[in-house]
Design a protein around this nucleic acid. Sequence first.
RNA 1: GCGCCUCUAGCUCAAUUCGGCAGAGCAACGGACUCUUAAUCCGCAGGUUCUGGGUUCGAGUCCCAGGGGGCGUACCA
Length: 472
Amino acid sequence: MSDPPQIPYRFERSHTVAHVVEEFSGLQAGVTTETRVSVSGRLMLRRDQGRIAFGTLQDASGRVQLFATASATPDFERFTTLSIGDWIGVDGVVMTTRRGELSVRVDSWVTLARTRRQFPDKWHGLTDPDTRYRRRYLDLWVSEEARTVFTRRSAILSGLRRRLDAQGFMEVETPMLHPIPGGAAAKPFVTRHEALDADLYLRVAPELYLKRLVVGGMERVYEIGRVFRNEGLSTRHNPEFTMLELYQAYADHGDIMELTENLVAGVAGEVCGSTTVVYGGREIDFAAPWRRLTMEQAIAECSGLEVSLDSPPTELRDCCERLGIAVDASWGPGKMLLEIYEKAAEPNLWGPVFVTDYPAEVSPLSRNHRSRPGYTERFEGIAAGRELCNAFTELTDPDEQRSRFEAQAALRAGGDDEAMAVDEDYLRALEYGLPPTGGLGIGVDRLTMLLCDTHAIRDALLFPTLRPDPSL
RNA sequence: GCGCCUCUAGCUCAAUUCGGCAGAGCAACGGACUCUUAAUCCGCAGGUUCUGGGUUCGAGUCCCAGGGGGCGUACCA
């Protein structure tokens, strides 16, 4: 074997593999065209045959066979020493073999990168989840399913953006470093800014900044971005995940429900080819309109329990205890009702369904229900037993918001490190006037899971959070 | 955090209920082959069995501690 040739600085490609396959799909067996193409990618299989050799070239779009011969292929001997996983660029005519396999004849070729490490088994690929996540760059080459999920995730993101842009929403970017964590009940990550000599928190939600923008006259805004929550990892939780939040001035929860069901159904139809998708072997149809159930109705339907905020507190407490929920002394009826719902109803709601009318006690940022005291105009969209989105008619009154914050701060003082703090700056913004506004948050990773039929959030994230590898 | 399971060659996996020489396929390496399709055939090489202790004449296997991972649970509006 001769020395490796100089690696070029660029390679001019005329076709992707898929483009070649598409353009020449009808070619009969044993035909050599006069069309020259240049393609590039990794050599994923090689079948040497003496004075001819076959290879399988894979690029981002697919696979095509390479056909090399001692007479037509320069450096044929060296070609047959390429390793599986080597990057090459190939130039040659499009042809079919006697058996009819579409191929590119290797009339010239160049090494673009060599792999110094051996690729996984060409048939079994990678099965160890840890290796798949830690070396995603390998997983992407050997696992078709992984490529499909991330291609689809990208389509979901652009589909969401396109639809919102078309409805007059403006995409914005708000700070990820917050002086006061807020916008969701979650434990934040703390970091430190040296020059400011201040602790800052990685955002748990962009909500309070986006609503400041509505105060500022941005009537329809959205942000798609990472949020960070310092909580446990599970099949459904990653410490950093992607949230879509949007706010629409002059809209209420009803408008947001319509927007949500149309947005999700539209993206599902576009990305999956149908609003009906199969998740875990069971169909789920995202076509609008989705069912609406109040929290009490959801509880009653799933468990037969007749409870509400008007139930005597002792009854709510008994109900919690029967369900195995450890009731904290600080819980009011709203928190108990929510816990009952989450334990007895939510996992059993296949949906998609909007569960509406959340207690004010557990909804510090949403506006009081126009006709049901103690409740808010908040809803969550549930699909496959899990929260897909959270939305409400926004609380606009600064005095009411202050008292909600203070209730949260009291919980915080009592040791609840997920409760919110009083955000004076946000209150000042409200004092300048927030018009009636509807808001929505969608978990993009959860949506991806639903539309890709994956059951672990790690499979919907390119690089899920893992413990640092102690062997490195 | 807690419980259960798991970790063997680059990858995928073996290694007899009950402790007895650590193996195969693919990849790699050397060779044969002008139409293969996970090519085939011949040959060669490949190991801190996650780490550290312990029991034993003898440990991949049993015990203890630690590490990684998976699942469940808790937490996560």
